[in-house]
Simulated assay, not measured.
Amino acid sequence: MICHTEIKATHPPIWQYTDELPPGGGNSLAAVAFVFVLVVTLPVYGLTLLLITAVEALKGVPLTFVQSLTDPWFYAPLLGTALLAAGMLRWAASAPRVLAFTFDGAQQLFTFTQTRPLRKPAEVQVPFSDILSVRPYLMASYDTSGHFQVAFTGPGGKVVEHRLGMHFPLAEMEFHAQWLRGFIGERAHEVLNLDL
């Protein structure tokens, strides 16, 4: 995480922030989904194999389950289902994420760069007049750092919300919120502790 501002007595006219994207974000969730689907479907495969064997034994047909177990095509649907579930969960967990943002006091403009699954990063500009709120949050009372949540009016009048950063020190959050209050008034909230 790279923060381009330092806490000073007077706030600079531009607040810029860049967050480094961690490599492979969401891959652990996909691995869990893959294992979960395998654990759930293996008993179903085992039960199916037992039923096939029982039907073959009742009909007097020679048992073929040993051949089935050694046939790679027998496992293809199992692995395919698990991989599909892992991919879908990875896709669902990859929500748009803000990588960088700038609050430009001189131009009254909030600009941010967001990533989306399987798309190039996109830059979005929002006039300060379209910002509905900027809320700094601490997740717990013992936390010393938190994040900002910004809400603004997007295309078609839809309310859009994004999380900005994750590890802003408390003093820095208060400093930036106070500076923003000079431009957008009470829409820039005080630091809120989610524990309370």
Rank of each mutant, 00 (worst) to 15 (best):
A31Y: 03
A92S: 13
K158H: 09
L49S: 07
D19F: 04
T53A: 15
G146A: 06
S94Y: 14
R119A: 06
M1I: 15
S129A: 05
G25Q: 10
W91P: 00
V150S: 09
Q108T: 10
S141C: 05
D104N: 01
S133C: 03
H167Q: 08
V35Q: 11
L83E: 00
Q67D: 14
L84D: 09
D19Y: 04
P117E: 05
A9Y: 05
M166W: 12
A85S: 12
V126I: 08
Y142E: 04
Y142H: 09
T10G: 08
G24Q: 05
G146M: 03
T5W: 02
S94H: 03
T113A: 04
W91A: 08
A177P: 00
A188D: 10
P117Y: 07
E174P: 05
T64E: 10
R187E: 09
P77S: 12
P43M: 02
E123G: 09
R135H: 05
L51E: 11
L109P: 05
E172W: 09
A30E: 13
Y17G: 02
H189R: 08
A151F: 01
N193L: 07
G26W: 01
G80L: 12
D143F: 01
F65C: 01
D195V: 13
L47Y: 03
F183P: 01
L38C: 13
I131N: 03
L58K: 15
N27T: 10
F168M: 06
W179Q: 01
V35Y: 10
R187M: 10
A177L: 04
W91R: 00
A30T: 14
R116K: 00
T113S: 10
A122M: 15
E56R: 11
N193I: 10
P12G: 14
M173Q: 06
E6C: 13
M139N: 10
L138E: 00
K158G: 02
A9S: 07
L42M: 08
A57G: 15
N27R: 03
F168A: 08
I52S: 07
F128Y: 14
V32E: 09
T70L: 12
A54P: 12
L99H: 07
T102F: 08
D104I: 09
S94K: 11
G46W: 03
V160M: 09
E6A: 13
H189T: 11
F101I: 10
G185F: 01
I52W: 04
G157A: 06
L180M: 05
E20H: 13
F128C: 12
A82R: 05
G25M: 06
P23L: 12
S141M: 04
Q114T: 06
L58F: 15
P13Y: 14
A106W: 15
T81Q: 04
Y142P: 07
L89E: 01
H4R: 14
P155N: 08
L47F: 11
G154E: 11
Y75C: 12
G80V: 13
T10V: 08
G156P: 03
L89V: 08
Q125V: 11
D130F: 02
L192I: 07
S141Q: 02
A30H: 04
S68T: 06
P117R: 02
W179M: 04
N193F: 07
L132F: 00
F101Q: 11
T153N: 06
A86M: 00
A140D: 15
E186I: 04
I52A: 10
F103C: 06
V150A: 07
F34A: 00
